[in-house]
C-alpha cells in the first residue's frame, strides 16, 4: 500500500508538486505568524501591569472614537442653571451631570470623554513626527559617522540642554499659541531621544555579521540602512515611542495649563485644568477629574511601554 502511494507520487507532474509546495508554504506562512504573535503575547502577558494598562488604553481609545455616542451631553453646551454642580454622590449633585459641571455649567464627564480624543490625537501626532524625524537623523548619524554625526549629535545635545518644557514654551511663544504649534514644539523637544536611541542601535548593529554579509552580497548603502539595519533597531524605538506618547500628553496638558496649548473652549484636559484653577478650593471636582484622567492615561501607557520592553527585549528571547 505504502509503496503504491509512493509510486503515484513520483508520477505526479512537476507542476503539481510545485503547487502543493506553494500551498504548504502558504500555510507555513500563517502558522509562523501566529506562532510569533503567540510568543509575543506570552512575554507581554507575563507582565500583569502591562495587560491592565493595555485594557485601560483600549477603553480610552474606544471612548475617544465613540465620544458622540457615549458622552451624555454636548461638551461645549453651557447649562446656565447649573454652575459648579457637584458630582452625583455629593449633596446637590444630579444624575444629569454625573461628575458635576464647571464654572460655566458644562458637563465635566462629557468634556473628559471628548478630551480623550484630543489627548490621543496629540500623542499620536507628536510621536509620529518625533519618530520619523528622529529615526531619520539617527540613521544618518550612525551610518555616516564623522562630520555629519558630530553635527547632528551636537545639535541634539543643544536641544537636550534646555529644560524641555521651557524650550517648548519658547517655541510656542515664537510660533504663537495653539494646539498645532504646541504639538510641533513638543515633537521637536522629544526628537533628540529618538535620534540618540537610533544612533546607538545603528552603531550596535552595523558591525554585526549579518550586516557584513549583506555588504559582501553587494548591498548599496541605502539598502543597508533601510532594509538591513533599520528593522533591527525598531524594538527600542517602539518602546521609547510608547513612553514618549505619555510624555507628549503630559507636556501638551502642561502647555494647555499655561494657556499656550489648545485654546478654550476646546475640551483638552490641560486647558480644562487651567480654567478650573481658581475654583480649586471651592469645587474640588473641577480640577480633580481632568487631573485623574491625565494620570490614568499616562500610567496606562507607561505600563504598556514596560510590557512592550519585556516582550521585545532580545535578551529575554534567547530561543
Amino acid at each position: 500500500m505504502g509503496l503504491s502511494i509512493r509510486a503515484l507520487g513520483i508520477t505526479s507532474t512537476r507542476s503539481m508538486r510545485k503547487d502543493s509546495v506553494r500551498k504548504n508554504s502558504l500555510q507555513e506562512k500563517r502558522s509562523v505568524r501566529t506562532r510569533m504573535l503567540a510568543e509575543f503575547w506570552f512575554y507581554f502577558a507575563e507582565n500583569r501591569g502591562a495587560v491592565i494598562g493595555l485594557r485601560v488604553f483600549a477603553l480610552l481609545v474606544l471612548l475617544a472614537i465613540a465620544a458622540p455616542l457615549v458622552a451624555p451631553l454636548p461638551p461645549s453646551e453651557q447649562y446656565r442653571d447649573a454652575f459648579l454642580t457637584p458630582p452625583v454622590w455629593q449633596e446637590g449633585g444630579s444624575w444629569k451631570f454625573i461628575l458635576g459641571t464647571d464654572a460655566v455649567g458644562r458637563d465635566i464627564l462629557s468634556r473628559l470623554i471628548y478630551g480623550a480624543r484630543f489627548s490621543l490625537f496629540i500623542g499620536l501626532v507628536v510621536v509620529t513626527i518625533a519618530i520619523s524625524g528622529g529615526v531619520l537623523l539617527g540613521l544618518l548619524a550612525g551610518y555616516c559617522r564623522g562630520v555629519i554625526d558630530t553635527l547632528i549629535m551636537r545639535i541634539m545635545d543643544v536641544i537636550l540642554a534646555f529644560p524641555s518644557l521651557l524650550l517648548a514654551l519658547v517655541m510656542v511663544a515664537i510660533l504663537g499659541p495653539g494646539l498645532l504649534n504646541a504639538m510641533i514644539a513638543i515633537a521637536i523637544v522629544l526628537q533628540p531621544h529618538f535620534v540618540r536611541l537610533t544612533r546607538a542601535s545603528v552603531l550596535n548593529e552595523i558591525n554585526r555579521d549579518y550586516v557584513t554579509s549583506a555588504r559582501v552580497a553587494g548591498a548599496p548603502p541605502l539598502y543597508l540602512i533601510t532594509r538591513t539595519i533599520l528593522p533591527n533597531c525598531l524594538s527600542p524605538i517602539i518602546v521609547q515611542g510608547t513612553l514618549s506618547f505619555s510624555t507628549a500628553i503630559l507636556d501638551a496638558a502642561a502647555l494647555g495649563f499655561l494657556g499656550l496649548g489648545a485654546q478654550p473652549p476646546t475640551p483638552e484636559w490641560g486647558t480644562m485644568l487651567a480654567e478650573a484653577r481658581e475654583f480649586i478650593l471651592r469645587a474640588w471636582w473641577v480640577v480633580t477629574f481632568p487631573g485623574l484622567a491625565i494620570l490614568l492615561t499616562v500610567l496606562a501607557i507607561n505600563l504598556v511601554g514596560d510590557g512592550l520592553r519585556d516582550a521585545l527585549d532580545p535578551k529575554l528571547k534567547k530561543s
Binding site: 554585526r208 555579521d209 549579518y210 557584513t212 554579509s213 549583506a214 559582501v216 552580497a217 553587494g218 548591498a219 548599496p220 539598502y223 538591513t228 528593522p231 533591527n232 532580545p314
Partner: peptide
C-alpha cells in the same frame, strides 16, 4: 563568506527566503 556565529550572521528580522534571495535581488 561564511561566518563563525550562525546566530549573528543571519538578519533576525528577515525570513529565510528573503535572506537567500537578497544576493540575487541585489
Amino acid at each position: 563568506v561564511v561566518f563563525q556565529d550562525p546566530y549573528a550572521s543571519l538578519n533576525p528580522r528577515h525570513k529565510i527566503g528573503t535572506i537567500l534571495e537578497e544576493p540575487l535581488a541585489l
